[in-house]
Protein backbone atom coordinates (compact mmCIF):
# COMPACT_ATOMS: atom_id res chain seq x y z
CA UNK A 1 0.00 0.00 0.00
CA UNK A 2 1.31 3.46 -0.91
CA UNK A 3 1.11 6.52 1.33
CA UNK A 4 2.12 10.12 1.47
CA UNK A 5 3.01 11.31 4.95
CA UNK A 6 5.34 13.71 6.75
CA UNK A 7 8.86 13.38 8.05
CA UNK A 8 7.64 14.05 11.59
CA UNK A 9 5.07 11.29 11.32
CA UNK A 10 7.49 8.74 9.88
CA UNK A 11 10.12 9.62 12.48
CA UNK A 12 7.50 9.07 15.18
CA UNK A 13 6.67 5.67 13.66
CA UNK A 14 10.34 4.66 13.60
CA UNK A 15 10.80 5.93 17.12
CA UNK A 16 8.01 3.54 18.09
CA UNK A 17 9.51 0.70 16.05
CA UNK A 18 12.87 1.23 17.72
CA UNK A 19 11.46 -0.41 20.86
CA UNK A 20 11.64 -3.72 19.00
CA UNK A 21 14.10 -2.98 16.20
CA UNK A 22 17.54 -1.46 15.87
CA UNK A 23 17.42 0.77 12.80
CA UNK A 24 20.47 0.61 10.51
CA UNK A 25 21.14 2.91 7.60
CA UNK A 26 24.06 4.34 5.64
CA UNK A 27 25.45 7.16 7.77
CA UNK A 28 28.20 9.68 7.32
CA UNK A 29 31.06 9.15 9.77
CA UNK A 30 32.86 12.47 9.62
CA UNK A 31 36.62 12.14 9.35
CA UNK A 32 36.59 8.34 9.67
CA UNK A 33 37.86 7.76 6.13
CA UNK A 34 41.25 6.45 5.11
CA UNK A 35 42.78 9.91 4.83
CA UNK A 36 42.65 13.10 6.88
CA UNK A 37 39.35 15.01 6.60
CA UNK A 38 37.79 12.27 4.48
CA UNK A 39 34.47 10.85 5.66
CA UNK A 40 33.24 7.28 5.52
CA UNK A 41 29.68 6.38 4.66
CA UNK A 42 28.88 3.07 6.24
CA UNK A 43 26.09 1.39 8.13
CA UNK A 44 25.33 2.57 11.63
CA UNK A 45 22.45 2.82 14.03
CA UNK A 46 20.08 5.74 13.48
CA UNK A 47 17.24 7.21 15.51
CA UNK A 48 16.08 9.79 12.97
CA UNK A 49 15.72 9.56 9.19
CA UNK A 50 17.69 12.78 8.80
CA UNK A 51 20.79 10.80 9.78
CA UNK A 52 20.54 8.71 6.62
CA UNK A 53 22.94 9.57 3.80
CA UNK A 54 20.61 9.48 0.79
CA UNK A 55 22.72 11.62 -1.53
CA UNK A 56 25.76 9.37 -1.85
CA UNK A 57 26.59 5.71 -2.24
CA UNK A 58 27.75 4.07 0.96
CA UNK A 59 31.38 2.95 0.94
CA UNK A 60 30.49 -0.27 2.74
CA UNK A 61 27.38 -2.37 2.22
CA UNK A 62 24.67 -3.37 4.68
CA UNK A 63 26.10 -6.88 5.02
CA UNK A 64 27.71 -6.18 8.39
CA UNK A 65 24.21 -6.08 9.93
CA UNK A 66 23.56 -9.74 9.05
CA UNK A 67 27.16 -10.86 9.01
CA UNK A 68 28.94 -8.85 11.70
CA UNK A 69 32.59 -8.12 10.92
CA UNK A 70 33.45 -9.97 14.10
CA UNK A 71 30.81 -12.19 15.70
CA UNK A 72 31.16 -14.35 18.78
CA UNK A 73 29.47 -17.69 18.07
CA UNK A 74 29.93 -19.43 21.40
CA UNK A 75 31.81 -19.41 24.68
CA UNK A 76 33.62 -22.44 26.03
CA UNK A 77 35.22 -23.68 29.19
CA UNK A 78 36.62 -27.10 30.10
CA UNK A 79 33.64 -29.34 29.28
CA UNK A 80 30.89 -26.94 28.42
CA UNK A 81 29.97 -24.42 25.80
CA UNK A 82 27.25 -21.85 25.44
CA UNK A 83 26.08 -20.18 22.25
CA UNK A 84 26.29 -16.41 22.25
CA UNK A 85 22.90 -14.79 22.72
CA UNK A 86 21.25 -13.29 19.68
CA UNK A 87 20.44 -9.59 19.86
CA UNK A 88 17.16 -9.08 21.71
CA UNK A 89 15.84 -6.66 19.11
CA UNK A 90 15.27 -7.25 15.43
CA UNK A 91 16.75 -4.97 12.79
CA UNK A 92 15.45 -2.59 10.16
CA UNK A 93 17.86 -1.96 7.32
CA UNK A 94 17.70 0.87 4.77
CA UNK A 95 19.36 -0.16 1.52
CA UNK A 96 19.34 0.36 -2.23
CA UNK A 97 18.07 -2.02 -4.90
CA UNK A 98 21.50 -3.45 -5.75
CA UNK A 99 22.09 -4.33 -2.09
CA UNK A 100 18.67 -5.91 -1.86
CA UNK A 101 19.81 -8.22 -4.66
CA UNK A 102 22.98 -8.72 -2.63
CA UNK A 103 20.79 -9.96 0.20
CA UNK A 104 19.53 -12.73 -2.08
CA UNK A 105 23.15 -13.80 -2.68
CA UNK A 106 23.77 -13.88 1.06
CA UNK A 107 20.59 -15.90 1.60
CA UNK A 108 21.67 -18.35 -1.08
CA UNK A 109 25.04 -18.89 0.54
CA UNK A 110 23.89 -19.02 4.17
CA UNK A 111 20.43 -20.59 3.89
CA UNK A 112 20.28 -22.59 0.68
CA UNK A 113 23.79 -23.87 0.15
CA UNK A 114 23.68 -27.04 2.19
CA UNK A 115 23.24 -26.69 5.94
CA UNK A 116 21.44 -23.60 7.19
CA UNK A 117 23.71 -21.19 9.06
CA UNK A 118 21.83 -20.64 12.31
CA UNK A 119 23.78 -17.54 13.28
CA UNK A 120 22.86 -15.89 10.00
CA UNK A 121 19.28 -17.17 10.10
CA UNK A 122 18.53 -15.88 13.56
CA UNK A 123 19.52 -12.36 12.52
CA UNK A 124 17.96 -12.61 9.07
CA UNK A 125 14.56 -13.78 10.38
CA UNK A 126 14.21 -10.69 12.52
CA UNK A 127 15.31 -8.14 9.91
CA UNK A 128 13.11 -5.89 7.80
CA UNK A 129 14.40 -4.23 4.64
CA UNK A 130 13.51 -0.75 3.49
CA UNK A 131 14.38 0.22 -0.06
CA UNK A 132 16.06 3.55 -0.78
CA UNK A 133 15.47 4.72 -4.34
CA UNK A 134 18.14 5.83 -6.79
CA UNK A 135 17.22 8.94 -8.77
CA UNK A 136 20.64 8.93 -10.40
CA UNK A 137 23.37 6.43 -10.96
CA UNK A 138 26.53 6.97 -8.93
CA UNK A 139 30.09 6.75 -10.18
CA UNK A 140 31.11 3.16 -11.03
CA UNK A 141 27.58 1.76 -10.63
CA UNK A 142 26.71 -0.92 -13.20
CA UNK A 143 23.49 -2.29 -11.73
CA UNK A 144 21.71 -2.10 -15.09
CA UNK A 145 24.30 -4.42 -16.63
CA UNK A 146 23.71 -6.89 -13.80
CA UNK A 147 19.91 -6.43 -13.81
CA UNK A 148 19.76 -5.31 -10.17
CA UNK A 149 18.52 -1.75 -10.65
CA UNK A 150 15.00 -2.64 -9.49
CA UNK A 151 13.60 -4.75 -6.71
CA UNK A 152 10.09 -5.38 -5.41
CA UNK A 153 11.31 -7.65 -2.68
CA UNK A 154 11.20 -5.11 0.13
CA UNK A 155 9.25 -4.61 3.34
CA UNK A 156 8.86 -0.96 2.50
CA UNK A 157 10.10 1.71 0.14
CA UNK A 158 10.66 5.12 1.65
CA UNK A 159 11.45 8.35 -0.15
CA UNK A 160 12.14 11.50 1.84
CA UNK A 161 11.56 14.73 -0.07
CA UNK A 162 11.98 17.63 2.35
CA UNK A 163 9.20 17.24 4.88
CA UNK A 164 7.13 15.01 2.63
CA UNK A 165 7.67 11.26 2.76
CA UNK A 166 6.41 8.70 0.27
CA UNK A 167 6.01 5.14 1.49
CA UNK A 168 5.19 1.91 -0.28
CA UNK A 169 4.59 -0.65 2.42
CA UNK A 170 4.61 -4.42 2.19
CA UNK A 171 4.70 -4.66 5.97
CA UNK A 172 1.52 -4.94 8.03
CA UNK A 173 3.06 -3.24 11.05
CA UNK A 174 3.87 -0.20 8.95
CA UNK A 175 0.45 -0.27 7.27
CA UNK A 176 -1.17 -0.21 10.70
CA UNK A 177 1.03 2.68 11.84
CA UNK A 178 0.23 4.62 8.68
CA UNK A 179 -3.54 4.05 8.89
CA UNK A 180 -5.23 7.33 8.12
CA UNK A 181 -2.33 8.72 6.06
CA UNK A 182 -3.06 9.92 2.53
CA UNK A 183 -2.99 6.99 0.15
CA UNK A 184 -0.84 7.42 -2.91
CA UNK A 185 0.54 5.42 -5.75
CA UNK A 186 4.25 5.11 -4.98
CA UNK A 187 6.80 3.77 -7.45
CA UNK A 188 10.39 3.39 -6.24
CA UNK A 189 12.94 5.57 -8.02
CA UNK A 190 15.33 3.53 -10.08
CA UNK A 191 17.86 4.22 -12.79
CA UNK A 192 17.58 2.95 -16.35
CA UNK A 193 21.21 3.37 -17.37
CA UNK A 194 24.67 3.69 -15.84
CA UNK A 195 27.78 5.33 -17.26
CA UNK A 196 29.59 2.06 -16.68
CA UNK A 197 28.36 -0.72 -18.92
CA UNK A 198 29.62 -4.22 -18.29
CA UNK A 199 29.29 -7.15 -20.65
CA UNK A 200 29.65 -10.45 -18.87
CA UNK A 201 30.93 -13.39 -20.92
CA UNK A 202 28.51 -16.32 -21.03
CA UNK A 203 31.16 -18.80 -20.01
CA UNK A 204 34.88 -18.47 -19.54
CA UNK A 205 36.91 -21.38 -20.89
CA UNK A 206 39.23 -23.03 -18.38
CA UNK A 207 42.15 -22.34 -20.72
CA UNK A 208 41.96 -18.66 -19.77
CA UNK A 209 42.62 -19.44 -16.10
CA UNK A 210 46.35 -19.31 -16.70
CA UNK A 211 46.22 -16.56 -19.34
CA UNK A 212 48.89 -13.84 -19.11
CA UNK A 213 45.88 -11.49 -18.73
CA UNK A 214 45.93 -12.07 -14.95
CA UNK A 215 49.61 -11.27 -14.53
CA UNK A 216 48.92 -7.55 -14.82
CA UNK A 217 46.69 -7.81 -11.75
CA UNK A 218 49.39 -9.78 -9.98
CA UNK A 219 51.65 -6.77 -10.37
CA UNK A 220 49.03 -4.22 -9.37
CA UNK A 221 47.02 -5.81 -6.54
CA UNK A 222 48.41 -5.19 -3.04
CA UNK A 223 46.22 -7.86 -1.40
CA UNK A 224 44.53 -5.45 0.98
CA UNK A 225 41.10 -7.07 0.55
CA UNK A 226 39.16 -3.81 0.41
CA UNK A 227 37.24 -5.01 -2.68
CA UNK A 228 36.00 -8.01 -0.68
CA UNK A 229 35.14 -6.08 2.45
CA UNK A 230 33.01 -3.49 0.67
CA UNK A 231 31.27 -6.13 -1.47
CA UNK A 232 27.72 -7.04 -0.39
CA UNK A 233 28.14 -10.48 -1.94
CA UNK A 234 31.48 -11.48 -0.40
CA UNK A 235 30.43 -13.78 2.42
CA UNK A 236 33.62 -15.59 3.39
CA UNK A 237 34.62 -15.77 7.01
CA UNK A 238 37.32 -17.35 9.09
CA UNK A 239 37.35 -18.59 12.68
CA UNK A 240 39.25 -17.30 15.67
CA UNK A 241 39.45 -19.32 18.87
CA UNK A 242 40.31 -17.08 21.75
CA UNK A 243 41.56 -18.25 25.14
CA UNK A 244 41.04 -15.50 27.68
CA UNK A 245 44.36 -14.22 28.93
CA UNK A 246 43.39 -14.23 32.62
CA UNK A 247 42.03 -17.77 32.43
CA UNK A 248 43.21 -19.96 29.60
CA UNK A 249 40.58 -22.57 30.39
CA UNK A 250 37.79 -20.36 29.12
CA UNK A 251 37.41 -18.67 25.84
CA UNK A 252 35.26 -18.01 22.83
CA UNK A 253 35.01 -18.80 19.17
CA UNK A 254 34.23 -15.97 16.87
CA UNK A 255 34.02 -15.65 13.15
CA UNK A 256 35.39 -12.66 11.28
CA UNK A 257 35.26 -11.57 7.67
CA UNK A 258 37.84 -13.14 5.41
CA UNK A 259 39.11 -12.06 2.01
CA UNK A 260 40.33 -14.20 -0.89
CA UNK A 261 42.78 -11.39 -1.75
CA UNK A 262 44.41 -11.18 1.68
CA UNK A 263 47.42 -13.34 2.59
CA UNK A 264 46.48 -16.39 4.60
CA UNK A 265 43.18 -17.15 2.86
CA UNK A 266 44.43 -20.36 1.30
CA UNK A 267 46.81 -21.35 4.10
CA UNK A 268 46.48 -24.97 5.05
CA UNK A 269 47.68 -27.04 7.97
CA UNK A 270 51.36 -27.57 7.42
CA UNK A 271 51.84 -24.11 5.96
CA UNK A 272 51.05 -24.66 2.30
CA UNK A 273 49.18 -21.84 0.55
CA UNK A 274 47.84 -22.71 -2.87
CA UNK A 275 47.10 -19.27 -4.30
CA UNK A 276 50.03 -17.01 -3.48
CA UNK A 277 49.97 -15.14 -6.76
CA UNK A 278 47.81 -12.02 -6.52
CA UNK A 279 46.83 -12.27 -10.17
CA UNK A 280 45.41 -15.72 -9.49
CA UNK A 281 43.55 -14.32 -6.48
CA UNK A 282 41.99 -11.74 -8.80
CA UNK A 283 41.12 -14.51 -11.25
CA UNK A 284 39.53 -16.56 -8.47
CA UNK A 285 37.40 -13.64 -7.27
CA UNK A 286 36.35 -12.45 -10.71
CA UNK A 287 35.42 -15.92 -11.88
CA UNK A 288 33.45 -16.54 -8.72
CA UNK A 289 31.49 -13.32 -9.11
CA UNK A 290 30.52 -13.74 -12.75
CA UNK A 291 31.03 -17.36 -13.69
CA UNK A 292 31.18 -20.10 -11.06
CA UNK A 293 28.37 -18.79 -8.90
CA UNK A 294 26.02 -18.62 -11.86
CA UNK A 295 26.74 -22.21 -12.79
CA UNK A 296 25.67 -23.31 -9.34
CA UNK A 297 22.89 -20.90 -8.50
CA UNK A 298 21.63 -19.48 -11.80
CA UNK A 299 22.42 -15.79 -11.31
CA UNK A 300 25.64 -13.85 -11.30
CA UNK A 301 26.96 -13.17 -7.84
CA UNK A 302 28.07 -9.61 -8.61
CA UNK A 303 25.24 -7.11 -8.23
CA UNK A 304 27.04 -4.18 -9.90
CA UNK A 305 27.24 -1.74 -7.00
CA UNK A 306 30.77 -0.80 -8.09
CA UNK A 307 32.02 -0.34 -4.54
CA UNK A 308 35.10 -2.44 -5.35
CA UNK A 309 35.99 0.06 -8.07
CA UNK A 310 35.24 2.97 -5.73
CA UNK A 311 37.58 1.68 -3.03
CA UNK A 312 40.57 0.06 -4.72
CA UNK A 313 43.66 2.05 -3.67
CA UNK A 314 45.50 0.77 -6.75
CA UNK A 315 42.73 1.82 -9.14
CA UNK A 316 42.02 -1.73 -10.29
CA UNK A 317 38.62 -1.76 -11.96
CA UNK A 318 36.62 -4.96 -11.54
CA UNK A 319 34.10 -3.70 -14.11
CA UNK A 320 36.81 -3.11 -16.68
CA UNK A 321 38.33 -6.49 -15.87
CA UNK A 322 35.08 -8.21 -16.80
CA UNK A 323 34.84 -6.22 -20.03
CA UNK A 324 38.44 -7.07 -20.91
CA UNK A 325 37.77 -10.69 -20.04
CA UNK A 326 34.75 -10.64 -22.33
CA UNK A 327 36.89 -9.41 -25.21
CA UNK A 328 39.43 -12.12 -24.42
CA UNK A 329 36.74 -14.80 -24.40
CA UNK A 330 35.34 -13.56 -27.74
CA UNK A 331 38.83 -13.52 -29.25
CA UNK A 332 39.60 -17.03 -28.06
CA UNK A 333 36.30 -18.28 -29.49
CA UNK A 334 37.20 -16.70 -32.85
CA UNK A 335 40.62 -18.36 -32.77
CA UNK A 336 39.04 -21.74 -32.22
CA UNK A 337 36.74 -21.20 -35.20
Amino acid sequence: MGYQTTLAKINAIFSDLSKDYVIYAPKRFVGDGTFTNIDTIRYGEITDLSEIEFAEKSNYSFKEVLLPISETLFYFTENEMKEADAPKKGAIVFLRSCDLHGLKRMDTIYLENGAVDTYYKRLRDKTKFILMGCENSFENCFCVSMGTQKSDDYDAYIKVDGNAVLVDSHWDLLDAALAGATEASVMPDSVTANNTVVTVPETVPQTLFDAPFWEDYGNRCIACGRCNFVCPTCTCFTMQDIFYTDNGKAGERRRVWASCHVDGYTDMAGGHAFRNDKGQRMRFKVMHKVNDYKRRFGTHMCIGCGRCDDVCPEYISFANCINKLNTLVNDSVKEEN
Binding site: F29, G31, D32, G33, T34, F35, T36, T40, R42, Y60, I69, C224, G225, R226, F229, Q240, I242, F243, T245, V256, W257, S259
Partner: peptide, 28 residues
Protein backbone atom coordinates in the same frame (compact mmCIF):
# COMPACT_ATOMS: atom_id res chain seq x y z
CA UNK B 1 44.19 -12.98 20.60
CA UNK B 2 43.88 -11.89 16.96
CA UNK B 3 43.43 -8.27 17.98
CA UNK B 4 45.79 -5.37 17.85
CA UNK B 5 47.62 -3.86 20.80
CA UNK B 6 49.15 -0.41 20.24
CA UNK B 7 52.24 0.46 22.21
CA UNK B 8 51.33 4.01 23.11
CA UNK B 9 54.89 4.79 24.22
CA UNK B 10 56.28 3.93 20.79
CA UNK B 11 53.48 5.21 18.56
CA UNK B 12 54.45 8.36 16.65
CA UNK B 13 50.90 9.07 15.45
CA UNK B 14 51.78 8.74 11.77
CA UNK B 15 48.43 7.18 10.88
CA UNK B 16 49.81 4.29 8.79
CA UNK B 17 47.46 1.92 10.65
CA UNK B 18 44.49 4.11 9.72
CA UNK B 19 45.58 4.39 6.10
CA UNK B 20 46.09 0.65 5.72
CA UNK B 21 43.00 -0.60 7.59
CA UNK B 22 40.52 -2.06 5.10
CA UNK B 23 37.51 -2.11 7.45
CA UNK B 24 37.74 1.25 9.31
CA UNK B 25 38.66 -0.50 12.53
CA UNK B 26 41.38 2.15 12.79
CA UNK B 27 40.29 5.77 12.43
CA UNK B 28 41.82 9.12 13.32
Amino acid sequence: NYRIVRNTEKCVGCGECVINCPTRAWTR
